[in-house]
Simulated assay, not measured.
Amino acid sequence: MAQLRSSTPLESWQAPEGEPVIRVESVTKKFGDVYAVDDISLSIHQGEFFSLLGSSGCGKTTLLRMLAGFETPSAGRIFIDGVDMTHTPPYERPINMMFQSYALFPHMTVEDNIAFGLKQEGMPSSERKQRIQEMMALVQIDALAKRKPHQLSGGQRQRVALARALAKQPKILLLDEPLGALDKKLREKTQFELVNIQERLGMTFVIVTHDQEEAMTMSSRIALMHDGRIEQIDPPRRMYEYPSTRYAASFIGTVNLFSGYVVSQEDDHVLIQSEEAGGLLQVKHSQPLVAGMEVTVAVRPEKCRLMAELTGAPNQIKGVIKEIAYLGDVSIYHVDLPSGKRVQFTQSNIQALAEQPLTWEQEVCLAWQSNSCGVLEE
């Protein structure tokens, strides 16, 4: 999984004295008898690029709309900069929103679209022109000033919408699936540009996306949502390496899950018997677990390595290759175990046109280290 950001010694959300710029307290939103958002609490700090990630219908857009003021919570409170804004209308919040559809005015030029909110605020003409020029330069659309939306590509319209959202210099920018209409290469390029702009401005960005790679690439932290609730909030690397639930493990990346029960625990290692894996699994895990407790062991495909034969040690499995996918940089192998469980492992294709040593129906032995897998209790 790609990740653009690097960790600093102490992030804003880790600082004990750091006050969040957004604080959501026990917020619920019902539509009739349906809970779109169910008792959510979270904090977002100044300068974060925070992602609300999840599949369609998980409640992420409803939560974003409540932050913007377009929806009112059925219960709970929303604080922005320490002020209760639960019932404050959108135009009185220090927030701007970039919509999925971009919502550009078709009869206006690029510069007029960017100027619209500034005119509404009564900004003087000379100051307004300077701000428009700054915003167009920031998103690299200087040459498009006199064009109208129908004369622009999807990527150009996206930049205009971003410039318009940033022009009023909001404290917080909300983005609802902003890259969904772009093709893959342009989307990947724009992800880096968005992060660079956000870091340059020092603004807080909150983005809604269903794309896990998009969230992993851009975010300082991710809130993974499911059925109106938050499954896990963590920086991308921690969410990938240490998922807290089966759902989180399955949603972020690809994972092999082995059901089993705890046999014993010594120091910071736990032994788990798994019929699906066909033997004992050992996991580095410092939290105490009770013998006999049902758990799941999560192993990422890239953590598995080939070995000549089984030695009887934990974390070793044998199976038969049933499917192979060549993706250029890596090859993915699907392996059927004697238990009927199908697992995946990957190999990097380092040498061009190298002869592939693995083929269909070949028996392989796989192993992984105890510190490269995890235990899930849910």
Rank of each mutant, 00 (worst) to 15 (best):
A163L: 03
A163P: 01
A163R: 02
R164H: 07
L166R: 04
L166V: 04
A167G: 07
Q169E: 15
P170Q: 14
P170S: 14
P170D: 13
K171Y: 10
K171D: 15
I172P: 00
L174F: 01
L175N: 03
L175F: 02
L175S: 03
D176W: 01
D176R: 02
D176H: 01
E177W: 00
P178F: 05
A181Q: 13
L182N: 06
D183N: 09
D183L: 11
D183S: 08
D183C: 07
K185P: 05
K185Y: 10
K185A: 15
E188L: 15
E188T: 14
E188W: 09
K189V: 02
F192C: 13
L194A: 10
L194E: 11
V195C: 00
N196T: 13
N196I: 05
I197V: 12
Q198Y: 06
Q198A: 12
E199S: 12
R200S: 10
R200L: 10
L201Y: 08
L201D: 07
G202V: 14
G202Y: 14
G202L: 15
T204C: 11
F205D: 03
F205Y: 11
F205V: 10
V206M: 07
V206A: 07
V206D: 09
V206G: 06
I207H: 11
I207S: 13
V208P: 01
H210E: 12
H210W: 08
D211N: 11
D211F: 04
D211C: 07
Q212G: 05
Q212Y: 09
E213R: 15
E214R: 12
A215R: 03
A215M: 04
T217G: 02
T217V: 11
T217Y: 08
T217K: 11
T217C: 12
M218R: 06
M218E: 07
M218C: 04
M218V: 10
S219I: 09
S219V: 07
S220D: 11
R221P: 00
I222Q: 08
A223R: 03
L224P: 01
D227A: 15
D227W: 09
G228L: 06
G228D: 04
I230V: 12
I230L: 11
E231G: 00
E231V: 02
Q232D: 08
Q232M: 06
Q232R: 07
Q232P: 04
I233Q: 09
D234T: 00
P236D: 05
P236T: 03
R237M: 13
R237L: 15
R237Y: 11
R238C: 00
Y240Q: 06
E241G: 05
E241P: 02
E241V: 10
P243G: 04
S244P: 00
S244V: 08
